[in-house]
């Protein structure tokens, strides 16, 4: 890989069918060297299936997959040696200690004993499991287990690290630790593919994001590029508010309001233009003597992008 932005992964026209159900529908993805590439989508959108196809674990119905410029196949050992995978579910031996687990999985990639020993020690430091090397996985907390899972996947210092929802069911402290670790891994030279349905994580971590739904690519770009695609510049939410139908209609007809949804005492307004939207709405409520519990303004998120593109919430 000589050029800075050479393609690490190229997926073209990927199709994966499970009987009559199409899980991946002509998916195109390009992941460049040095990126932290986020694959964002709700549960069942096809993220893990895409990863399975990319790793040649799953047969696919059509399309091509290239990794480091070469066709990926089960016997492409030279390519596999450069890839590290962290699966969504725990994938370690319960009978081995933390150190033995990392040693075993690192050993599947690195044959040189001296190098392996060094890699294992570095991986233990990297995930902060130095105090637990003689413990078995069942003796670790959920967060520590996740860290072990990650260490087993990246101990051999892969050029491409694939992390499939590594923070599911993890406490905030461990989550921050994991995210920080991923950044460090990227800074050390690994290209990262990060799948998640947690938009905040993806937004915070990833340099480029692809949003997929029902196996199709809906949008792709940096976080700001994606958010820039939607019309709304601000979302104002008022809770504990009582409105008449006329009042809702009046709000909808205001020039800055793109859409107004009033349901169960919660008013959600998508506004165009930046800055004064909240003040305008507050003035209207005061003028109409409408009481409310609390009101706040938010910048659009990837969830708003997803909502606008698909008509549903990311976590639906």
């Amino acid at each position: 890989m000589s050029t800075e932005n050479a393609n690490v992964v190229e997926i073209r026209g990927l199709v994966k069918d499970y009987g009559v159900f199409r899980a991946i529908d002509h998916l195109d993805l390009t992941i460049r060297q040095g990126e932290i590439f986020g694959l964002l989508g709700p549960n069942g959108s096809g993220k893990s299936t895409t990863i399975g196809c990319l790793l040649s674990l799953l047969k696919y119905s059509g399309g091509t997959i290239k990794v480091f410029g070469e066709s990926m196949s089960p016997a492409a050992y030279d390519l596999k040696r450069r890839i590290g995978v962290v699966f969504q579910d725990m994938a370690v031996f319960d009978q081995l200690t933390v150190k033995d687990n990392i040693d075993y999985f690192c050993g599947l990639y690195v044959t040189d004993k001296t190098a392996r020993k060094k890699y294992v020690e570095e991986a233990i430091d990297f995930v902060g499991l130095g105090d637990f090397i003689r413990k078995k996985p069942r003796q670790l907390s959920g967060g520590l287990k996740r860290r072990l899972n990650i260490a087993c996947g990246i101990a051999h210092k892969p050029d491409l690290a694939i992390l499939d929802e590594p923070t599911v069911a993890v406490d905030p402290q461990s989550r921050n630790n994991i995210l920080e670790g991923i950044r460090q891994l990227n800074q050390a030279g690994s290209t990262i593919i990060y799948t998640s349905h947690y938009m905040e994580e993806v937004e915070e971590l990833c340099t480029r994001i692809a949003i997929i739904d029902r196996g199709k690519l809906i949008a792709e770009g940096t976080s700001s590029e994606l958010i820039g695609r939607i019309q709304a510049d601000e979302t104002v939410t008022a809770e504990g508010i009582q409105l008449t139908e006329d009042q809702v209609r009046q709000l909808e007809q205001m020039p800055i309001v793109l859409s107004a949804v009033y349901n169960g005492g919660i008013l959600k307004l998508q506004l165009r233009g930046s800055g004064a939207g909240l003040m305008t709405i507050l003035r209207y409520l005061e003028q109409e003597r409408i009481r409310f519990g609390r009101i706040y303004s938010e910048k659009p998120t990837l969830n708003d992008v997803f909502l606008e593109l698909t008509g549903k919430e990311l976590r639906d």
């Binding site: 674990l57 050992y77 596999k80 995978v85 994938a91 031996f93 999985f105 599947l108 996947g153």
Partner: peptide, 21 residues
Amino acid sequence: EESAANASPLAARRCVCPRSR
């Protein structure tokens, strides 16, 4: 169960390593 990728995540991890199956 530790060998067939469709049987466990652990097996899937072993399946993606650069070793002859």
